[in-house]
Structures are given as structure tokens and as C-alpha cells.
Write a protein that binds this DNA or RNA. Structure first.
Lengths: 346, 346
DNA sequence: GTGAAAGCGCTAACAA
DNA sequence: TTGTTAGCGCTTTCAC
């Protein structure tokens, strides 16, 4: 009832436990006859080798920790799907946890994963402080960052999307459409480098367009704040002709705000979002977006992790793996026309 | 380096390993002095008690298996979020896996979870066959179904959404709007009871509306198939005034098909979907939908599981926990008007 | 080809 | 209050 052990099987098959072990793990020489007897015994007893016992002995658990901000977010979910796919292919299992973007939760979760003796952890990191990560690595598990890096750990293995390239591609696209006053809607908080905003500024500069601070809006990570930021941006600068949202939540807020202010998209204002979502096709109009290869990110991160934890930490530091983003041109961006909103508030 | 063990700590603190164990688990009497010494030693050695060793001894791993069809689907993700929240609160961790709606994958995953000695598994079940589940239970882990049941296991603990009530609420809403020819777009496959379709039929009957087989369309679970089914439905019955989609994928297909056929929503046809999605507000028009309490489902399922695995299997069978759905009235359904499409194909 | 024995890191009696 | 001891279920030499 409580689960048969290797001893039970050995007894039932009339062999030693070592033999059972050999049969179950398929290693070592076993005569075909005993092999069959053992298998039969295992079958009737419904024997399932305990991963605990095995792990204790072999010091390998086949467990991978996965830390995402919010499994409910399409990016996280897609990333997780990639990790799951790779992990399963390698016979590993995934312990999932959500940090909720909270550094303290993240730290606690890392402790728990360490206790579980995971072989590695894949994380979309929150905490800017490199120490918890270093501590974890010292304990054993390999760490691979996905989607973001930790500033203090330049050499940590990580798999990133080409954020800069993605932002550049939209901005250039918008510029090509004739837009000159393009706003950026970004996240607030000590979120660190704000790669997207930085790439936005850089591209503007490279294109010879003016960088007006007034065209930058920042929101806290709540729907309300995002909406407010978008709305006030639209009202503050009635002359802007396009806005790039640095995240899908922000983009949605922009769409809603535009709708609220009865701005037509893209006739009055073009909207593009960084981080494509599964429903961009269904929006009205369908949203032009920079798509991130989230699933690949997860898959690659897992590959990297497995390789690292296998080859010992003897892995060369290696540059980050950077995966391309893709500009999905849909209908929410249009050319600048003479009939566009000018300086006059509507 | 490789992680300190309880012995190391004991040696460093100059105590026996049992004392270390007592200190770490906070159980048993320990003098404040030794306690501090042990803690200090543990601190410097960066000691993390091994869940493997502990689990082997205590026969409790604190692991919960979670099997969803596809973590990328909003319902699954939301459910997972609920499970994670509850599990964390109880000090458990979650081993996530995706079945991809494949019974064989599901079966294999169950084996793996059994080997991991999870204390229970929460599953959105695929397989209609009760045996793998019974086998698992026999092995030890408690099983709780979420969102669906397995036909052969009426007494298995499960947490369900009130599908029938949800469908009834939309159909009644539609009927109240004057709709008489309401189509149903459902999934194909031996998917079993097809609760939603059944509830749809029942409600029609209860309302005294005719049940025309011609108004039922079924699609395989691919975007193409769903689109084709929706499109052919619209063309086959130009006189239908509303359609209920029995799933968000199907609903999206309906929206796209309507758009393709240049049917105006809701002027030409009303569309309602069962299974609300985070982006229904952003659609054009915003989608009226039956919202499922996915997160609560997950949370409750986890609660049930923990209680079951704690109280021994001595739990009373108990009826399924059924959580209410909510009709989210938005703009994709409208009243029937004289100017609606009649029998004439457009 | 097969079995006996020694642990892996931990907890839970039981002694002291 | 604390240490000793006996396993939990498994893999892995090392003899036979």
C-alpha cells in the first residue's frame, strides 16, 4: 500500500537488492532470466524506484527550479513552456515558482530550491543584488538567467532577447512611416537599466531625431497607473504621432487610453508595443508589436543549464546567448498624414 | 563547496548531529547557548538541510505535482497561479508539467511524479480511463482534479467551475436579447461529456427554443479548424443571430471569421464566449464572456489536496467543490433587430 | 552474473 | 538538555 521498496521486490524475486537496482536502472550485467523475474515482481508490486533514495545516493535529483515573475503573464508562461519541453526531453522535472517581482520572495524561493537540491535554476531575476545568486551557485546549483540579467554578474550564463534590436526595429519602422514625435511609455521603479527605454533613446539619436523628455512617460506596474500615464501623455502632447509601449501591459493601457480619448488608431496616433501577445491579432486594430522568442529563451536556457550542471561548473563563462526579436507589422501603425492631430488639443 | 552536511555543522559547533537537527527544525529542547552556536556554525558553513535526506526519513516531501494541458493557456496559467499561492503558503513546492492533452504523456508524467514521491497531484485530467489515477492513489499520492473530472471516478475529490450555470447564464442573456437562432461552436474529439454543449442544449430546451442540429459546429483543437468551423457555420446559417463559443480559442475563431466575412458584431451577429480571457476588453468589440474562477479553482484544489494528504486518505469522499462562473457582459452581444441578416446569404 | 555491505543526509527513538 | 543509534530507499564497490 504505502509503496513497495527495492527490498520487497528483491524478496519477491528471490534476488539481492543490488540485482533489482541493476535491472531497474538498466546498468550492469544481468541474466535474461533473473531480469524477467525482477521485472515481473516489480510489476505486481507496483514498484516505483524512489527518487529520494536515488538522489541521496547519486547526488543528482534531475530537478530544475524555474523562477518567473508571474506565470500568468504570457511571456513567463511561454518561457515556462520552453523550459518544460527541454526538461522533459532530458528527463528532468521542473519546480515552478513565481516571484511576483518581489526581491524578498525571490530570495526565499532560492533558499527553498537550494534545500530541494535542484541541479540548477532558471530565473527571470528580480533582485539587482548579485549575492544571493553567488551564494546559490556556491551551494551547488547552476544558475541561468533568462530574459534579464543581474547587473553585478556580467559573466553569469544567460539567455536574452535582443531588446535593443527589437526597439530599434520599431522605431525605425515608425520613422520610416514619417513619424517625428514618437513617445515612449515605460515602467517606473528602480528597475535598473531599463534596456528598452535606453534603446529607444539611442535609436532616436541614431536617426537624428530629437529626444524630448516630455515624450517619455513612466508608469508603476499597475493597470491604473499605466492607463493614467498613457492618458496624460496623450493629453500633454497632442502633437505626438506615435507611441512605443515598453511592455504589453503598457501597450494595452495605451490602446484603452486612446479609445477613451476617442483618438483613432492609427489615424490619429500610431501605437506599437514591445512584447507581443497572443491576442494582438484580435485587437482593433491589430497591434503592431515586437515579438520576443520567449519559448526559445526558455528552451535554450534549459539547455544551457543542463550542459553547465553536467560539465561541472567547468563551463567557460561565455557571452550571453542573444535571440532575435521580430517586428510583427500589423495595423496599429500608419503613415503620418497632414490631417493628423497637430498642436491643438482635440 | 559541495554543500555542508549536518555532520559538518555538528562538528563545527561541537555538538551531536541530533542537536543540529533539533535546532534547524525548531523542535525539541535546546539550550539557548548551543542553539546560538549551532546557528552560527550553520551560517558560516552556509548549511542548507537537504530535503532529500529529510524526505527519505520523514516520508514527506512537500512536493505537489501539477498537470495542466498547456501552461501557455490563460486558464492553465491562472489555475497554476492559484496552486502556487496556496502551496507556498503551506510551505510546499510545485512540480509543474504540461500534458498537451495527450493521454500517454499524462500517464508518463504520472509515473515520474510517483517516483518523485509527490504528496499529491492536482490535475486537469486528459485521460478518461480511471485506472492510472487509481494506481497513483494506491501508491500514495492524493489526487485532486481541477476544472474537469474523470468519468470513471465520480467520488474523486475535485474542484469544478459551474459550467452548466455559466452556459445557462449566457444563453438566457442572449434569449433575453431576443435571439432565437443561437448557434454553438464546440470542440470535437472523444472529449467526453462535452459539458458545455450539453448545458447549451439543456438551456435551449428549458427556454422552449428549438434545438437545431444545424446550429452546432465542431472543430478540432487547432486554430485553422476552429476558424473553418466558425466560417462555415456563418455561411451555412446566414439566419443565425448569435453564437456561443464553447472555449476561448473557438471564440477568437468566431471573431476572426466574422471579421473575414465582414459581419458586424453585434449588429449582424452576437458572439459570446465561454472562458473569459484577459484581453476581452481589448477586442473590438469587447467580448461578452463567461468567466471561470481559474485561480480560485487552483487555490481550492491545493487546499483540498493538502487536507487530504494530511488527514490520511480518511477524507470523506465528498461532493465536488463547484465554484460559480460569472457572466461578463460586454459589447459583443446586442439585441435582435429587424435589420439583422435574415435568410439571405450576404 | 550476483549478493553483501557501506553509506548518501537526515530524523526519531532511546539513553544518558 | 544532549549524544548515540538505527534506519528511510537507493547505488555502488568489492567479493564470490
Amino acid at each position: 500500500m504505502g509503496g513497495a521498496t527495492i527490498k520487497d521486490v528483491a524478496a519477491a524475486a528471490g534476488v539481492g537488492i543490488a540485482t533489482v537496482s541493476r535491472v531497474m536502472s538498466g546498468s550492469g550485467p544481468v541474466s535474461e532470466a533473473t531480469r524477467r523475474r525482477v521485472l515481473a515482481a516489480a510489476e505486481t508490486l507496483e514498484y516505483r524506484p524512489s527518487a529520494l533514495g536515488r538522489g541521496l545516493k547519486t547526488r543528482r535529483t534531475g530537478a530544475i527550479g524555474l523562477l518567473v515573475p508571474d506565470i500568468t503573464d504570457p511571456f513567463s508562461a511561454e518561457l515556462a513552456a520552453g523550459v518544460l519541453a527541454c526538461a522533459r526531453a532530458q528527463g528532468c522535472h521542473v519546480v515552478l515558482d513565481a516571484t511576483g517581482e518581489d526581491p524578498d520572495v525571490e530570495a526565499e524561493l532560492l533558499e527553498r530550491l537550494a534545500e530541494q537540491r535542484v541541479e540548477g535554476v532558471i530565473a527571470v531575476p528580480v533582485r539587482r543584488d548579485p549575492r544571493p545568486w553567488e551564494a546559490l551557485t556556491r551551494l551547488g546549483p547552476a544558475v541561468v538567467f533568462a530574459g534579464r540579467t543581474v547587473p553585478g554578474l556580467p559573466s553569469a550564463p544567460c539567455v536574452l532577447a535582443d531588446e535593443a534590436g527589437g526597439v530599434r526595429s520599431v522605431v525605425e519602422y515608425l520613422a520610416g512611416l514619417g513619424h517625428r514625435r514618437v513617445a515612449f511609455l515605460g515602467g517606473r521603479g528602480a528597475d535598473g537599466p531599463a534596456v528598452r527605454e535606453e534603446a529607444f533613446r539611442a535609436t532616436l539619436a541614431a536617426l537624428g531625431l530629437a529626444v524630448e523628455e516630455d515624450l517619455f512617460a513612466r508608469a508603476r506596474p499597475t493597470a491604473d497607473s499605466a492607463f493614467a500615464a498613457a492618458a496624460s501623455l496623450f493629453q500633454r502632447r497632442p502633437d505626438l504621432t506615435a507611441v512605443v509601449a515598453g511592455g504589453h501591459r503598457l501597450g494595452e493601457a495605451a490602446v484603452l487610453a486612446a479609445r477613451e480619448l476617442t483618438l483613432r488608431v492609427p489615424a490619429d496616433v500610431s501605437i506599437a508595443i514591445v512584447e507581443d501577445v497572443p491576442w494582438s491579432e484580435l485587437c482593433d486594430p491589430p497591434l503592431t508589436a515586437v515579438a520576443h522568442p520567449a519559448r526559445d529563451l526558455g528552451y535554450r536556457a534549459c539547455e544551457l543549464l543542463l550542459r553547465a550542471s553536467a560539465g561541472g561548473a567547468a563551463r567557460a563563462p561565455g557571452r550571453p546567448v542573444v535571440l532575435a526579436t521580430e517586428l510583427m507589422v500589423r495595423a496599429s501603425c500608419g503613415p503620418v498624414t497632414g490631417s493628423m492631430r497637430t498642436g491643438r488639443p482635440r
